[in-house]
Structure formats: structure tokens, C-alpha cells
């Protein structure tokens, strides 16, 4: 079962994004929604922040096959920006030297198994895969 939906490239779409993901996961009998919401939000928010100058949609597709969950987030008209290359934050430095940037991607990498980036025909695509325990 695969589902796909387009969302306006704006942070106010997040509620709809969460609803779309939750509905799918419920049908797929996946109960641990939190890590999936977090991974999708962080990538979606990055796509909004780094390509806010155009008004293309972000298309999200989700598919569970066996124990593997695959989620594609595609910005349909974007400059290349490889979110997977954002540097992880240094977590062992004193407070004043800490930086907020990169925290989101660091979390994504903890909550899903793999994060891929592809750029083709002005489409910036991030693919998340996670092996489910259930």
C-alpha cells in the first residue's frame, strides 16, 4: 500500500502532514508514530526553510513493504540542497559554543535507519527508510 499527497510549502502545513502520516501508519498497524513524525517534520521544515523563494508543493509518499517503511519527500522545484550533508552538531561543547543548526538532522539519523538525497530535474528528494519492529 502506497499513499501520496501534496502539501503547500509552508510550516503551517505540518498539521496536515502529521495527519497524513498518522492515518497511513494506523492502517498499516504501526503504533510508534513519534519517530516517524519527527523524521518527516525535520526534513519537511528544512525543505521549507532552504527553498522558501519558490511556491512549489512538497510531495510526500509513504509505503510499507514487509517490515520496511519508505518515505519520499520531494520538493518539486528546488535548488540542490543535500540535507544529508548538514554537519552534525557538537554535543560535548560548553553551552555558549553550542549551535542550534544541525540538531534536526542529527535526530532524523537517530530515528530512521537511512537518509538518502537525490536531485533530478529540479526535484530535490529525500528518502527515509526505517525497519519496523512490529
Amino acid at each position: 500500500m502506497r499513499r501520496e499527497k501534496s502539501f503547500t510549502k509552508n510550516l503551517s502545513s505540518l498539521d496536515e502532514v502529521f495527519a497524513f502520516i498518522s492515518t497511513y501508519l494506523q492502517h498499516a498497524n504501526v503504533t510508534d508514530v513519534f519517530p516517524i513524525h519527527l523524521a518527516v517534520e525535520e526534513i519537511f521544515a528544512n525543505m521549507v526553510r532552504y527553498n522558501s523563494q519558490n511556491f512549489s508543493d512538497i510531495v510526500i509518499s509513504i509505503e510499507k513493504s514487509g517490515k520496511t517503511l519508505r518515505i519520499h519527500l520531494s520538493d518539486e522545484q528546488a535548488e540542490p540542497f543535500d540535507v544529508t550533508k548538514v554537519k552534525s552538531p557538537e554535543l560535548n561543547v560548553p553551552l555558549p559554543q553550542r549551535k542550534v543548526g544541525g540538531l534536526g538532522l542529527h535526530l532524523v539519523k537517530q530515528f530512521v535507519d537511512q537518509v538518502y538525497y537525490e536531485y533530478e530535474n529540479h526535484h530535490s528528494i529525500v528518502i527515509l527508510t526505517k525497519t519496523l519492529e512490529t
Binding site: 513519534f34 513524525h37 519527527l38 517534520e41 525535520e42 521544515a45 553550542r98 542550534v100 540538531l103 534536526g104 535526530l107
Partner: peptide
Amino acid sequence: YISSAGLGVFMG
């Protein structure tokens, strides 16, 4: 639920 945007507020 909380994501990095929420945690960033604490840092600020």
C-alpha cells in the same frame, strides 16, 4: 511531541 525547533527555544 517535540522536535528540534522546540529544543532550539530552550537554547535561545
